[in-house]
Write a protein that binds this DNA or RNA. Structure first.
Length: 425
RNA sequence: GGAGGCGUCGCCUAGUGGCCUAUGGCGCCCGCCUGCUAAGCGGGUUCGGGGCUUAAAUCCCGUCGCGGGUUCAAAUCCCGCCGCCUCCGCCA
């Protein structure tokens, strides 16, 4: 949620932010209007309520005919109080509903525009020249099938399209990658966490996932629960309605979870293999820190993501996502994209968002200050997902059908340095 | 799924319709006192909103798990929900 006080004092930055996302800024006026009505009702309510209390004491002290008369008067006052409360409640409900629809205020410096208006910050590593090596690269599914590691046909038989089995070396590779990610996080001071993957509506709404991308989220109607698309949701909920002590530095968590996405708007896109699937696993960093420290922490998260990408020896680039492609909760977002040789394009492997106080405000995660409490900042970033297997297989394939294992992953694969094709039954 | 009990401030706790503007203790914070420490003394200490102010204090409203209801008046009575505990049943 955006800061209502700031919005009242100066709505222009919020309007400008809305426009940079390519969205209508008319919501801002509706919010200010509802807020004004709410405040007017509340003002009289508080006065009458005060009178009512004084009256109550008189009634309690009185007896006989005097009491009867006082009760009659008190009754009128009570009716007025009730009406005012209803007015204020209605305006508050309206205000909340509008306020929750305004996405986070975009950070200064974020590129204006949509999905294609990102700014490339840098490229790291060397893309292999397969022509020079003398063979045409196979795509991740072909390699995965040769290794006996990926089975999408049976995934579709059992669960439908965009489902898959990871088998044998495929399953081991995912576990190795995610364990490396967990260990990387732990060694950098993160607390490892295995999170719930079903959450209550208020937690899902608080993280901002029921905004523009609500259709992406699986919902269990019978139980009024949502399946998370990332452990970020549960980790944001972890300290909801709490007052945190961040005096010793940021609270950093590394969540390991299954992730579920409906992919409702992506029919026909990335249909081959396991690039875009309904269910996968992810290790996600999640940080609570002071708002003043958020931008610097965002850079640190990006650094840890790059540490992981370097560890698995992948060529990648970093992009600064444009305003229109931020999602509702992020003020700024950096993506790391690995090179995908068979499609001659970059594939998103990580995404780190600075959500400033947006999620914390909705979930009431605060810290103590001299004047009282204030919302903290929350940030998140990817450290490893099932999708990384795609980039690993394609970038590390050899001409003979085998796949080179990055040195950092070998301890997690029993020392295996090479994944070799198997004959499948 | 069935039966019962419980939810008050960081923790414990008093409170069974108006004297609750919520008690007391522990912890914590500030001050005083004292060779040091401990003890002692005084004050403060839920959270949210509003007003006043350079700022703070004082002040006003809400807040006793959450939401409704009864009543002139609800921590207190009624209904629903959520959470926790005990027992029974079922189960990976």
């Amino acid at each position: 949620m955006i800061d209502l006080k700031l919005l009242r004092d100066d709505p222009e930055p919020v309007r400008a932010s809305q426009r940079s996302r390519g969205e209508d800024d008319g919501l801002v006026d509706a919010v200010l209007d509802a807020d004004a009505r709410r405040r007017a009702s509340l003002l009289e309510f508080e006065q009458r309520r005060s009178e009512q209390k004084t009256f109550g004491k008189q009634v309690a002290a009185a007896t006989g005919a005097e009491k009867v008369a006082l009760v009659a008067q008190a009754k009128q006052l009570s009716e007025r109080v009730r009406a005012l409360q209803a007015e204020a409640d209605a305006a508050q409900t309206e205000l909340d509903e509008l306020l929750w629809r305004i996405p986070n205020v975009v950070a200064p410096g974020v590129p204006v525009g949509g999905e294609d208006d990102y700014v490339e910050l840098k490229q790291v590593g060397t893309r292999r020249d397969f022509a020079a090596e003398g063979f045409a690269p196979a795509d991740h599914l072909e390699i995965g099938e040769r290794l006996g590691g990926i089975d999408v046909a049976r995934g579709a038989k059992v669960s439908g399209s965009r489902f898959y089995f990871l088998t044998g070396v495929g399953a081991r590779l995912e576990l190795a990658l995610l364990n490396l990610a967990m260990d990387t996080a732990t060694s950098n001071g993160f607390t490892p966490v295995i999170t719930p993957t079903l959450v209550r509506p208020e937690i899902m709404a608080g993280t901002g996932f029921l905004g523009a991308h609500a259709a992406e989220v699986y919902r269990l109607r019978d139980d009024d629960l949502y399946l998370v698309g990332t452990s970020e949701v549960a980790l944001a909920g972890l300290h909801s309605d709490e007052i945190l002590d961040l005096s010793a530095g940021p609270a950093r968590y590394a969540g390991w979870s299954a992730c579920y996405r409906r992919e409702a708007g992506s029919h026909g896109r990335d249909t081959r293999g396991i690039i875009r699937v309904h269910q996968f696993h992810k290790v996600e960093m999640f940080v609570y820190c002071t708002p003043d420290d958020a931008a610097a922490e965002h850079e640190r998260l990006l650094g840890w993501e790059e540490q992981m990408l370097a560890a698995v020896e992948l060529p990648y680039r970093v992009i600064d996502t444009a305003a229109g492609d931020l999602g509702s909760s992020a003020a700024r977002k950096f993506d790391c994209e690995a090179w995908l040789p068979t499609q001659d394009r970059w594939l998103e492997l990580t995404s780190t968002s600075n959500c400033t106080t947006f999620q914390a405000r909705r979930l009431a995660a605060r810290e103590r200050t001299e004047g009282g409490t204030r919302p903290v900042a929350t940030l998140n970033g990817t450290l490893g997902t099932t999708r990384w297997i795609v980039a690993l297989l394609e970038n590390h394939q050899q001409g003979d059908g085998s796949v080179h294992v990055p040195v950092a992953l070998r301890p997690y694969l029993g020392g295996l340095a090479l994944l070799e094709p198997v004959v499948r039954g």
